[in-house]
């Protein structure tokens, strides 16, 4: 498994505020795989995702991003790794002084790509998430669903190898959550590795009929493979 997985966690523990939040946790995300991460609120889903994109350093154990040990990675290495990992947060943080289109293009800007050459891709992507008409709007003017779709577009504009989504359907209605799920499944069909943290079991059931997904559950600080009850 070592060397082939895009993101790998090996016997990882993470402590915060004196208490251990995650313990002896191992996980391997192979290229093109689809994962759901579930568990009760406060179980550590967001923490696990943060470990996966290098925002947190494990207390013990090893996290490897594209084969590189997180502990030995320089800050620039982490920045480069994040260009290969698209992250969608539940609260969808944007730069409020930039338009939706510019926010979606933000990963291109920070990586020094010429936006003039990327114009067609940006337009196509904005259309793919159904925000072409809202491209010039400012983020505070968007609805919850529009923000989620803009965040997804931003996460995938660099054509990353992995997309990590933290409760991407938390603030949207059922119809919108299905639309977002279809977009993520479509990305998976393009070969992207997807991991979605959610407590929405209905969403997981809906996805399982469309894609081969592994469902992982965090319980008692450990990661378990969820059974057929889902």
């Amino acid at each position: 498994m070592k060397g082939t997985a895009v993101i790998e966690l090996e016997n990882v523990a993470y402590s915060y505020g004196g208490g251990e939040l995650l313990s002896d946790l191992s996980l391997s995300l192979s290229p093109g795989s689809f994962h759901f991460l579930t568990g009760p609120s406060g179980a550590g889903k967001t923490t696990l995702l943060k470990l996966c994109y290098g925002a947190l350093v494990p207390t013990s154990g090893q996290v490897r991003l594209f084969g590189q040990d997180r502990r030995t990675m320089e800050r620039d290495d982490i920045a480069m790794a994040r260009r290969r990992i698209g992250v969608v947060h539940q609260d969808c943080k944007f730069l409020d002084h930039l338009s939706v289109s510019d926010n979606i293009a933000l990963p291109l800007m920070v990586s020094g790509r010429d936006l003039l050459n990327e114009g067609a891709n940006l337009k196509e992507l904005t259309g793919w998430v159904g925000l072409r008409e809202r491209a010039g709007a400012l983020p505070p003017e968007l609805s919850g669903g529009e923000r989620q779709r803009a965040a997804l577009a931003r996460a995938v504009i660099m054509s990353p190898d992995v997309v990590l989504a933290d409760e991407p359907t938390g603030n949207v209605d059922w119809e919108m959550s299905q639309r977002l799920l279809r977009l993520l499944i479509e990305l998976n069909h393009m070969g992207k590795t997807i991991m979605i943290a959610t407590h929405d079991l209905a969403l997981i059931r809906a996805a399982k009929s469309q894609v081969q997904a592994r469902v992982l559950r965090i319980a008692s600080r450990r990661l378990h493979l969820a059974g057929a009850d889902l």
């Binding site: 994109y53 925002a55 800050r75 920045a79 992250v87 730069l95 933000l106 990963p107 920070v110 990586s111």
Partner: peptide, 16 residues
């Protein structure tokens, strides 16, 4: 700090 967090999240290097 929130803006910097977003920039780091999308892969901005410190120099940028």
């Amino acid at each position: 700090s929130q803006l910097i967090g977003v920039l780091r999240l999308v892969g901005a290097r410190d120099t940028f």
